[in-house]
Structure formats: C-alpha cells, structure tokens
Computed example of a mutant assay.
Amino acid sequence: MSSSDIFIGETIGTAILILLGGGVCAAVTLKASKARNAGWLAITFGWGFAVLTAVYTSAPLSGAHLNPAVTLAIAIKDGDWKNVPVYWAGQLLGAMIGAALVWIAYYGQFQAHLTDREIVGGPGAQDTTAKAVEAQEKGAGPVLGIFSTGPEVRVAWQNLATEIIGTIVLVLAVLTQGLNDKGNGLGTLGALITALVVVSIGLSLGGPTGYAINPARDLGPRIVHALLPLPNKGGSDWGYAWVPVVGPLIGGAIAAGIYNVAFA
C-alpha cells in the first residue's frame, strides 16, 4: 500500500472512530440530548461499534491501525518503521477532524449545556480571584470528557498503569488474531472481535481513567477542545494529558515484546 493510501485511510478511519465514539459521549453527557444519562454501558458499546465501523471503512486502504500504539507494536514486531510517521500523522489529523464533527453535530446541545447555570454555575462559580480563574483554566472543564479522558482518582502511577494494562490487552488481541495476510494491520475479519475487545476493556478496565488506550484518540480531541470557541468550557487538563499518550505507547511496546517472545 502507498503512503497516500495509508494517510487517507488512517485519517478517514480515525475520524469515524472519534465521531462515533465522541458522539456517544456527547449524547450521554449533554443537556437536551435524547440519550442524556444513558450511562456507562451506552458509552462502552458505542465505542465498540465505533471501532467496528472505523475498521471496516479504513482497512482496505491502510490496514486500519487507527491507533499509534498499534502502529508502534506492529513496527516493533516486524522491524519495519518506514511508514510509522505517516500512520501517526493520519491518526492525529483524523482524531481532530472527528472531534470537530462531534462539535458540529451537537452544536446546539453544547451551547445549551455550557450556558446552563446549574451546570456551569454552582458553588464558587462567581469567584473571579486570580487563583480561582487559574484553577478553572487548568482543570478539566465540564465537557472535556466528551473529547478526551480523565481519571476518577488522580494518582499518576496508577493512571499510567491502568492505561498500560488496557493497551496491552488491546494490542495483543490485534496482533494475535486481527492481522491481515500482509501483517500490516487489522483486516475486516478481525474487526468484530477487536470491537468486542474494546467493549470488554471499557467494561472491565475503563472505570479508573476512561480507557484512552490510544494516544491519538485522546490528544487530537484534547487539542480541538482547547481550540474550539465553547462558552464556559474550562480547561483542557494538560497536566494529565501525558498519561493517555505515554501509557498506551508503553503498553503497545510491551504487547509487541510479549508477542515476539510468546507467539512469533
């Protein structure tokens, strides 16, 4: 496959992944959404179906990595690094496009949600001291969870370990059953199984951090959150942003090592 096919396939596939995955988070979170408060099951299955749709769409062009951790693991496994930058560039761009599309699709709901005094008001909302403003800008805003992940309990080593463990499970599943005949990514036959693995990770390991298990999935939408003209959006929590990038990359590398030792 050519570099242009890889870039286009990863951009389209990752955009679909984030559009549908971020879309279910928006549906469950935002005021005036028909699916508001549908809960964690809706989110986990929504992300699973997002993976399924994205893989089926992009596999013919790029092999459907859709995740820098998967790309890294395949490069370690095969020793072929030449297309890694192309994959990563397409994944990051696609994630940003998908996040922007979520904003467009739910524009009215974002406006209603972020101008509701019950949501953005609350205790201390009128505190305009420099310390309070700085805290609001640095912390996670009220809709950041639609775009990127965050911990329920902020313990850096545990949050990092959770992302590493979840990514190992995902990438091992991809490497052991999801590779197509050329060994360059997920084929369509592995799409359903991989989607179900993502659902399983969300149900079992998603509680502590929101299971990024994909650096592009978290970083691209976080950048979009920081750039979008959302009222009262709060901060993008850049102090945590390294965890869902570094953790999955470490997890992908470990999974590749396990694969090379145990399965190759």
Rank of each mutant, 00 (worst) to 15 (best):
T115A: 05
Y106V: 08
Q109K: 12
V120K: 01
A112I: 04
T128S: 12
A112R: 07
H113Y: 14
G122Y: 05
G124N: 02
A130F: 15
T129E: 09
T115D: 06
A112L: 11
G121P: 03
V102G: 08
A112C: 07
F110V: 00
Q111S: 12
I104T: 08
P123N: 10
T128W: 06
Q109V: 01
D127N: 12
T128M: 15
T128R: 13
T128C: 05
V102T: 13
H113Q: 04
A125F: 13
H113L: 04
T129K: 09
G121R: 00
R117K: 10
A125L: 07
D127E: 06
P123K: 13
Q126D: 15
D116V: 03
Q109N: 13
Q109Y: 04
Q109L: 05
D127I: 03
H113G: 01
A132V: 12
I119V: 14
H113A: 02
G124F: 03
I104G: 08
I119K: 03
Q126Y: 12
A105K: 10
R117M: 10
W103Y: 14
P123C: 06
Y106T: 08
I119R: 04
A132L: 15
F110N: 02
Y107N: 11
P123H: 08
Q111G: 07
V102Q: 07
G121S: 00
F110T: 01
L114R: 00
A130K: 15
A105C: 13
V120Q: 00
G121V: 02
T129S: 15
